[in-house]
Simulated assay, not measured.
Amino acid sequence: PISSDDETLKLWDLEQGRELATLSGHSSYVRAVAIAPDGKRAVSASEDNTLKLWDLEQGRELATLSGHSHWVTAVAIAPDGKRAVSASADYTLKLWDLEQGRELATLSGHSGWVRAVAIAPDGKRAVSASADKTLKLWDLEQGRELATLSGHSDEVNAVAIAPDGKRAVSASDDKTLKLWDLATGEEIASFTADTGVLACAVAPDGVTLVAGDRSGRVHFLRLEGL
């Protein structure tokens, strides 16, 4: 699915390049979407302060997840497909039970918009990125903060976790991409771009990083000797 400013999502057949369905129901811009590991469901995040759970096979809404008091800016689904974590402009994250469509916990601690969230491969931890210039590591089983990752000097726009769950990479408007050790909460390495970095990802090989900056450049980096 693709999210949009027209308040809908669209499901596409990527092999044939054709639209399969339009998912309507949000009452404001849709800012993010995540697909469950089984490919049968998706969760969308909207500026109407809600998330929606969708059945992709039937193209219909299954549930509305309400609880945030401001825009929902990002969402990630756990590897088991049973839970999701949302990030919001209300400075919080929320953990959701997707099978029952209910809120399990509110994760509080950031002092600015939470712009992004990633869930570790084991499904037990999550890392959030915020406009307060920090990232936070969360214990999803106990619903508590484990560590604050400090080092950026401007808003943190994105975060991704390596496939082994041991490291995370973050992208910031301070023009840097930073690599973090999640066991110690320490910064391992930093790459500086010419403009703010908006997005980042870790390849399945665990050593290739990809980042996009505000100038439109895409950077490919390889981790060596770490």
Rank of each mutant, 00 (worst) to 15 (best):
L93D: 02
L51Q: 13
A89F: 04
T8I: 05
K40T: 01
T92I: 05
S24A: 15
T50I: 07
S150T: 13
G59V: 00
A129S: 14
L51Y: 10
S172K: 12
T208C: 05
G81W: 07
T134I: 06
A76N: 10
D6T: 05
R217G: 11
T22M: 12
G143D: 15
L107C: 02
G25A: 03
E186P: 00
T106G: 02
E57M: 01
S24V: 06
K94V: 05
A131S: 13
A158K: 10
T22P: 06
L146G: 02
K82R: 15
L198M: 14
A74V: 11
A201W: 03
D80G: 02
A211Y: 03
F220L: 15
D132W: 04
K40G: 01
S44M: 10
K94D: 04
G143L: 12
A89V: 00
K52P: 04
E19L: 09
G81I: 12
E155D: 06
V85D: 10
I119S: 03
G101M: 08
Y29T: 15
A21D: 02
V85H: 13
I2F: 04
L62A: 07
W12I: 00
W138S: 12
E47W: 13
R18L: 05
R31G: 08
V117M: 08
D154A: 14
L62K: 07
T192L: 12
P79S: 13
S128I: 10
V197C: 07
W71Q: 05
S170N: 11
G112H: 01
L93T: 04
A87P: 09
D13H: 06
G151S: 06
D80M: 10
V127H: 05
V72H: 12
